Computed example of a mutant assay.
Amino acid sequence: MDLATTSTGVASFNVNVSKLGQNEIPEEYVKYYKDAGEKFGVPWTLISAIHRVETNFSSDLNTSSTGAIGHTQFQKATWLGWDYPGRDRLGDLKVADSILMDPAKIRQFRGFGTDCDNDGKANPFSLADAMCSTAKYLADNGGKKGDWRGAVYAYNHAGWYVNRVFKYYNSYTSNVKTVSVGSPATVVSKGGNGVIEKAIATGETIVGRSPYNFGGGRTIRDVERRSFDCSSFIRWAFSEAGTDLGPLDTTTTDTLVRLGKPVQPNQIRRGDLIFFDTYKKNGHVAIALDNNGNFLHDGSTKGVWKNNLSESYYKRVFKGVVRRIVE
Protein backbone atom coordinates (compact mmCIF):
# COMPACT_ATOMS: atom_id res chain seq x y z
CA MET A 1 0.00 0.00 0.00
CA ASP A 2 1.28 3.48 -0.86
CA LEU A 3 1.19 5.24 2.50
CA ALA A 4 1.42 8.66 0.86
CA THR A 5 -1.88 8.32 -1.00
CA THR A 6 -5.42 8.43 0.39
CA SER A 7 -8.08 5.83 -0.29
CA THR A 8 -9.43 8.13 -3.01
CA GLY A 9 -6.05 8.41 -4.72
CA VAL A 10 -5.55 12.05 -3.66
CA ALA A 11 -2.51 13.18 -1.69
CA SER A 12 -3.53 13.64 1.95
CA PHE A 13 -2.39 17.16 2.86
CA ASN A 14 0.74 16.60 0.70
CA VAL A 15 2.29 14.35 3.31
CA ASN A 16 4.79 11.64 2.45
CA VAL A 17 5.67 9.06 5.03
CA SER A 18 9.30 8.47 5.98
CA LYS A 19 11.08 5.14 6.02
CA LEU A 20 10.64 4.98 9.78
CA GLY A 21 6.94 5.74 9.40
CA GLN A 22 6.56 2.96 6.83
CA ASN A 23 8.16 0.53 9.25
CA GLU A 24 6.41 1.67 12.44
CA ILE A 25 2.88 2.82 11.53
CA PRO A 26 0.52 -0.19 11.37
CA GLU A 27 -0.71 -0.44 7.78
CA GLU A 28 -4.25 -1.38 8.82
CA TYR A 29 -4.75 2.07 10.40
CA VAL A 30 -3.40 4.20 7.56
CA LYS A 31 -6.75 4.41 5.70
CA TYR A 32 -8.40 5.89 8.82
CA TYR A 33 -5.64 8.48 9.28
CA LYS A 34 -5.74 9.55 5.66
CA ASP A 35 -9.51 9.74 5.41
CA ALA A 36 -9.67 11.84 8.59
CA GLY A 37 -6.78 14.02 7.47
CA GLU A 38 -8.36 14.66 4.10
CA LYS A 39 -11.77 15.44 5.61
CA PHE A 40 -10.44 18.03 8.08
CA GLY A 41 -7.23 19.23 6.45
CA VAL A 42 -4.84 17.68 8.95
CA PRO A 43 -1.51 15.96 8.13
CA TRP A 44 -2.32 12.28 8.53
CA THR A 45 1.05 11.53 10.08
CA LEU A 46 0.19 13.96 12.88
CA ILE A 47 -2.98 11.98 13.59
CA SER A 48 -0.90 8.80 13.61
CA ALA A 49 1.58 10.40 16.04
CA ILE A 50 -1.22 11.21 18.48
CA HIS A 51 -2.55 7.65 18.13
CA ARG A 52 0.97 6.39 18.88
CA VAL A 53 1.35 8.53 22.00
CA GLU A 54 -2.17 8.06 23.37
CA THR A 55 -2.67 4.28 23.12
CA ASN A 56 0.43 2.93 21.35
CA PHE A 57 -1.64 2.30 18.21
CA SER A 58 -4.61 0.96 20.19
CA SER A 59 -2.57 -1.64 22.08
CA ASP A 60 -3.82 -0.16 25.37
CA LEU A 61 -7.49 0.86 25.36
CA ASN A 62 -7.89 1.06 29.12
CA THR A 63 -9.72 4.09 30.50
CA SER A 64 -7.18 6.61 31.78
CA SER A 65 -6.95 7.78 35.38
CA THR A 66 -8.85 10.94 34.40
CA GLY A 67 -11.58 9.07 32.51
CA ALA A 68 -10.27 9.44 28.94
CA ILE A 69 -11.50 6.72 26.60
CA GLY A 70 -11.11 5.24 23.13
CA HIS A 71 -8.39 4.91 20.53
CA THR A 72 -7.22 8.52 20.93
CA GLN A 73 -8.22 9.04 24.58
CA PHE A 74 -10.94 11.68 24.63
CA GLN A 75 -12.43 12.98 27.85
CA LYS A 76 -16.16 12.28 27.71
CA ALA A 77 -16.96 15.98 28.12
CA THR A 78 -14.75 16.83 25.15
CA TRP A 79 -16.42 14.14 23.07
CA LEU A 80 -20.01 15.05 24.00
CA GLY A 81 -19.43 18.72 24.79
CA TRP A 82 -18.39 20.70 27.84
CA ASP A 83 -21.83 22.31 27.93
CA TYR A 84 -23.32 18.98 29.01
CA PRO A 85 -24.13 19.18 32.77
CA GLY A 86 -22.47 17.13 35.46
CA ARG A 87 -18.85 16.94 34.33
CA ASP A 88 -15.97 17.11 36.77
CA ARG A 89 -13.17 19.65 36.36
CA LEU A 90 -11.10 17.25 34.23
CA GLY A 91 -13.95 16.47 31.85
CA ASP A 92 -15.20 13.11 33.10
CA LEU A 93 -18.92 12.42 32.92
CA LYS A 94 -21.40 9.88 34.21
CA VAL A 95 -23.42 9.48 31.03
CA ALA A 96 -25.02 6.64 29.09
CA ASP A 97 -23.43 5.60 25.82
CA SER A 98 -26.74 6.34 24.07
CA ILE A 99 -26.22 10.02 24.91
CA LEU A 100 -22.42 10.10 24.64
CA MET A 101 -22.49 8.72 21.10
CA ASP A 102 -25.57 10.54 19.82
CA PRO A 103 -24.50 12.91 16.99
CA ALA A 104 -27.49 15.18 17.67
CA LYS A 105 -26.55 15.51 21.34
CA ILE A 106 -22.94 16.16 20.41
CA ARG A 107 -24.02 18.99 18.11
CA GLN A 108 -26.29 20.36 20.84
CA PHE A 109 -23.53 20.42 23.46
CA ARG A 110 -20.76 21.45 21.02
CA GLY A 111 -18.61 18.36 21.35
CA PHE A 112 -16.02 16.90 19.00
CA GLY A 113 -17.30 13.34 18.62
CA THR A 114 -17.78 12.58 14.92
CA ASP A 115 -19.63 9.78 13.13
CA CYS A 116 -17.28 9.05 10.24
CA ASP A 117 -18.32 5.46 9.56
CA ASN A 118 -21.95 6.59 9.12
CA ASP A 119 -23.48 4.04 11.46
CA GLY A 120 -25.52 6.65 13.32
CA LYS A 121 -23.19 6.73 16.34
CA ALA A 122 -20.08 8.76 17.15
CA ASN A 123 -18.16 6.06 18.95
CA PRO A 124 -14.72 6.74 20.50
CA PHE A 125 -14.00 3.01 20.15
CA SER A 126 -14.58 3.11 16.38
CA LEU A 127 -11.30 3.70 14.56
CA ALA A 128 -12.94 5.83 11.88
CA ASP A 129 -14.83 7.95 14.41
CA ALA A 130 -11.84 8.34 16.75
CA MET A 131 -9.44 9.48 14.02
CA CYS A 132 -11.97 11.90 12.51
CA SER A 133 -12.73 13.33 15.95
CA THR A 134 -9.04 13.82 16.64
CA ALA A 135 -8.61 15.53 13.26
CA LYS A 136 -11.63 17.76 13.86
CA TYR A 137 -10.29 18.75 17.29
CA LEU A 138 -6.88 19.63 15.88
CA ALA A 139 -8.39 21.60 13.00
CA ASP A 140 -10.74 23.57 15.26
CA ASN A 141 -8.08 24.38 17.85
CA GLY A 142 -5.47 26.07 15.70
CA GLY A 143 -4.87 23.68 12.82
CA LYS A 144 -7.00 25.64 10.37
CA LYS A 145 -4.62 28.55 10.94
CA GLY A 146 -1.52 26.38 10.68
CA ASP A 147 -0.81 26.38 14.43
CA TRP A 148 -0.23 22.65 14.79
CA ARG A 149 1.76 22.88 18.01
CA GLY A 150 -1.01 24.96 19.58
CA ALA A 151 -3.57 22.42 18.37
CA VAL A 152 -1.67 19.53 19.97
CA TYR A 153 -1.22 21.54 23.18
CA ALA A 154 -5.00 22.05 23.27
CA TYR A 155 -5.39 18.27 22.95
CA ASN A 156 -3.29 17.76 26.07
CA HIS A 157 -2.10 20.81 28.05
CA ALA A 158 1.47 19.68 28.65
CA GLY A 159 4.69 20.74 26.98
CA TRP A 160 6.18 17.25 27.30
CA TYR A 161 3.15 15.84 25.45
CA VAL A 162 3.53 18.29 22.57
CA ASN A 163 7.22 17.48 22.27
CA ARG A 164 6.55 13.75 22.28
CA VAL A 165 3.83 13.95 19.61
CA PHE A 166 6.06 16.09 17.39
CA LYS A 167 8.97 13.74 17.87
CA TYR A 168 6.89 11.04 16.19
CA TYR A 169 5.31 13.40 13.66
CA ASN A 170 8.70 14.68 12.51
CA SER A 171 10.14 11.16 12.32
CA TYR A 172 7.11 9.76 10.44
CA THR A 173 6.96 12.57 7.86
CA SER A 174 9.47 12.99 5.04
CA ASN A 175 8.41 16.11 3.13
CA VAL A 176 7.49 18.74 5.69
CA LYS A 177 9.65 21.25 7.46
CA THR A 178 10.61 19.84 10.83
CA VAL A 179 8.62 21.47 13.60
CA SER A 180 11.02 22.69 16.23
CA VAL A 181 10.69 21.63 19.86
CA GLY A 182 13.63 23.76 20.90
CA SER A 183 13.88 26.61 23.37
CA PRO A 184 12.79 30.19 22.73
CA ALA A 185 15.11 33.00 21.80
CA THR A 186 17.03 34.69 24.63
CA VAL A 187 17.95 38.03 23.12
CA VAL A 188 16.98 41.36 24.59
CA SER A 189 14.74 43.48 22.35
CA LYS A 190 16.18 46.82 21.29
CA GLY A 191 12.70 48.24 20.68
CA GLY A 192 12.95 50.67 23.58
CA ASN A 193 10.04 52.58 25.09
CA GLY A 194 7.83 52.00 22.09
CA VAL A 195 7.73 48.26 22.73
CA ILE A 196 7.30 48.73 26.48
CA GLU A 197 4.45 51.21 26.16
CA LYS A 198 2.59 49.11 23.59
CA ALA A 199 2.96 45.93 25.66
CA ILE A 200 1.66 47.63 28.79
CA ALA A 201 -1.15 49.36 26.92
CA THR A 202 -2.16 46.00 25.44
CA GLY A 203 -2.23 44.36 28.86
CA GLU A 204 -4.19 47.23 30.39
CA THR A 205 -7.02 46.71 27.90
CA ILE A 206 -8.15 43.61 29.82
CA VAL A 207 -7.60 44.71 33.44
CA GLY A 208 -10.55 43.37 35.40
CA ARG A 209 -11.90 41.62 32.33
CA SER A 210 -9.81 38.44 32.06
CA PRO A 211 -10.13 35.81 34.81
CA TYR A 212 -7.03 33.77 35.53
CA ASN A 213 -6.80 30.41 33.72
CA PHE A 214 -3.92 28.22 34.88
CA GLY A 215 -2.35 26.71 31.75
CA GLY A 216 -4.42 28.98 29.53
CA GLY A 217 -3.27 31.26 26.74
CA ARG A 218 -1.31 28.59 24.89
CA THR A 219 -3.65 28.03 21.98
CA ILE A 220 -4.99 30.47 19.40
CA ARG A 221 -8.47 29.86 20.75
CA ASP A 222 -7.44 30.87 24.29
CA VAL A 223 -5.67 33.98 23.01
CA GLU A 224 -8.74 35.01 21.04
CA ARG A 225 -10.80 34.62 24.23
CA ARG A 226 -8.15 36.50 26.26
CA SER A 227 -7.88 33.53 28.61
CA PHE A 228 -4.38 33.54 30.13
CA ASP A 229 -2.23 32.62 33.08
CA CYS A 230 0.60 34.87 34.27
CA SER A 231 3.28 33.86 31.76
CA SER A 232 1.04 33.54 28.71
CA PHE A 233 -0.38 36.98 29.52
CA ILE A 234 3.13 38.46 29.50
CA ARG A 235 3.98 36.67 26.27
CA TRP A 236 0.79 37.91 24.59
CA ALA A 237 1.28 41.54 25.66
CA PHE A 238 4.83 41.70 24.31
CA SER A 239 3.88 39.75 21.20
CA GLU A 240 1.30 42.42 20.41
CA ALA A 241 4.13 44.92 20.74
CA GLY A 242 6.24 43.02 18.21
CA THR A 243 8.55 41.26 20.68
CA ASP A 244 8.70 37.46 20.68
CA LEU A 245 9.29 35.99 24.13
CA GLY A 246 8.95 32.38 23.03
CA PRO A 247 6.60 29.81 21.47
CA LEU A 248 2.88 30.19 22.07
CA ASP A 249 2.47 26.78 23.67
CA THR A 250 5.63 26.41 25.76
CA THR A 251 6.43 29.83 27.23
CA THR A 252 6.33 29.69 31.03
CA THR A 253 7.90 31.51 33.96
CA ASP A 254 10.77 29.00 33.69
CA THR A 255 11.57 30.20 30.15
CA LEU A 256 10.87 33.89 30.77
CA VAL A 257 13.22 34.06 33.73
CA ARG A 258 16.11 33.13 31.40
CA LEU A 259 15.47 36.01 28.99
CA GLY A 260 17.20 39.37 29.00
CA LYS A 261 19.53 40.34 31.78
CA PRO A 262 19.23 40.47 35.59
CA VAL A 263 18.40 43.75 37.28
CA GLN A 264 18.79 44.74 40.93
CA PRO A 265 15.45 45.37 42.73
CA ASN A 266 16.40 49.00 43.42
CA GLN A 267 16.92 49.54 39.68
CA ILE A 268 13.53 48.30 38.44
CA ARG A 269 12.06 50.37 35.65
CA ARG A 270 8.93 50.30 33.52
CA GLY A 271 8.74 47.19 31.33
CA ASP A 272 10.99 44.93 33.44
CA LEU A 273 9.74 41.47 34.37
CA ILE A 274 9.31 40.82 38.10
CA PHE A 275 9.23 37.25 39.42
CA PHE A 276 7.69 35.85 42.61
CA ASP A 277 8.20 32.62 44.53
CA THR A 278 4.55 31.52 44.77
CA TYR A 279 3.75 27.81 44.34
CA LYS A 280 7.37 27.33 43.24
CA LYS A 281 10.54 29.37 42.75
CA ASN A 282 9.84 32.07 40.15
CA GLY A 283 6.32 30.68 39.80
CA HIS A 284 4.65 34.02 39.02
CA VAL A 285 5.61 36.93 36.75
CA ALA A 286 4.48 40.53 36.28
CA ILE A 287 5.39 43.62 34.24
CA ALA A 288 6.80 46.54 36.22
CA LEU A 289 4.88 49.79 35.68
CA ASP A 290 7.35 52.10 37.39
CA ASN A 291 10.13 52.19 40.00
CA ASN A 292 7.61 52.62 42.84
CA GLY A 293 6.59 48.97 43.04
CA ASN A 294 3.51 49.06 40.83
CA PHE A 295 3.06 46.15 38.43
CA LEU A 296 0.61 44.62 35.96
CA HIS A 297 -0.04 40.88 36.00
CA ASP A 298 -2.52 38.02 35.64
CA GLY A 299 -3.01 36.65 39.13
CA SER A 300 -5.07 33.76 40.47
CA THR A 301 -7.28 36.00 42.63
CA LYS A 302 -8.46 38.79 40.34
CA GLY A 303 -7.08 37.80 36.95
CA VAL A 304 -5.46 40.67 35.05
CA TRP A 305 -4.93 43.37 37.67
CA LYS A 306 -2.53 45.95 39.09
CA ASN A 307 -0.81 45.57 42.44
CA ASN A 308 2.18 46.90 44.37
CA LEU A 309 5.27 45.26 45.85
CA SER A 310 4.50 46.87 49.21
CA GLU A 311 1.38 44.75 49.66
CA SER A 312 1.98 42.09 52.31
CA TYR A 313 1.62 39.02 50.09
CA TYR A 314 3.78 40.32 47.26
CA LYS A 315 6.33 41.69 49.70
CA ARG A 316 6.64 38.19 51.13
CA VAL A 317 6.96 36.28 47.84
CA PHE A 318 9.16 38.75 45.93
CA LYS A 319 12.76 37.53 46.34
CA GLY A 320 14.46 40.13 44.18
CA VAL A 321 14.41 38.39 40.77
CA VAL A 322 13.97 40.95 37.98
CA ARG A 323 14.81 40.61 34.27
CA ARG A 324 15.16 43.40 31.70
CA ILE A 325 14.05 42.15 28.29
CA VAL A 326 13.67 45.47 26.45
CA GLU A 327 16.19 48.30 26.18
Rank of each mutant, 00 (worst) to 15 (best):
C132Q: 11
K39V: 06
V152Y: 13
T78F: 14
T186H: 02
G246D: 10
T253H: 07
V181F: 01
G271H: 12
K167Y: 08
N141K: 13
G182I: 04
C132S: 06
D115Y: 11
N175G: 00
R107C: 01
F13P: 07
K306P: 01
D88A: 03
S65R: 08
N141V: 08
K319A: 11
F125D: 01
W305H: 08
E224W: 04
G215E: 00
V53A: 04
G67Q: 08
I69T: 15
D147C: 15
A128D: 12
K177D: 05
S312A: 12
K19G: 10
A139W: 14
G111D: 07
V285E: 11
L248D: 05
D229I: 10
R218S: 03
N16D: 09
D117A: 11
S12C: 15
A288G: 10
H71E: 06
V15H: 02
L46M: 01
I206F: 00
D117Q: 09
F238A: 02
L309R: 13
Y279P: 01
D129W: 06
K319N: 14
P262I: 02
N123T: 13
R324N: 03
S64M: 11
R221K: 14
A154S: 09
G9I: 04
R89I: 09
G111N: 06
F125Q: 11
A104W: 06
S126Q: 10
N175V: 01
G303D: 05
Y314V: 10
F166K: 11
D254S: 15
A139M: 04
V17P: 00
A96R: 14
I200M: 04
R323E: 00
W160Q: 03
K315R: 14
C230I: 08
A49N: 10
E240F: 05
G320M: 03
R89P: 07
K31D: 14
T114F: 02
I106F: 08
V17R: 04
E224R: 14
F109G: 03
T255S: 09
D229K: 07
T202I: 07
N292F: 08
A4P: 02
R221P: 00
Y155F: 15
T186V: 12
M131Q: 15
F233H: 00
D129V: 07
E54K: 04
W82Q: 15
N175L: 04
A286P: 15
D222W: 01
H284R: 04
L138F: 13
T253Y: 08
A237N: 01
R226A: 05
N292V: 02
N62S: 12
G150V: 03
A288Y: 05
A128P: 12
T55R: 11
I50V: 14
C230D: 08
H284Q: 00
N23P: 09
D119H: 09
K281L: 02
A286Y: 12
R270F: 03
G283H: 01
A237K: 01
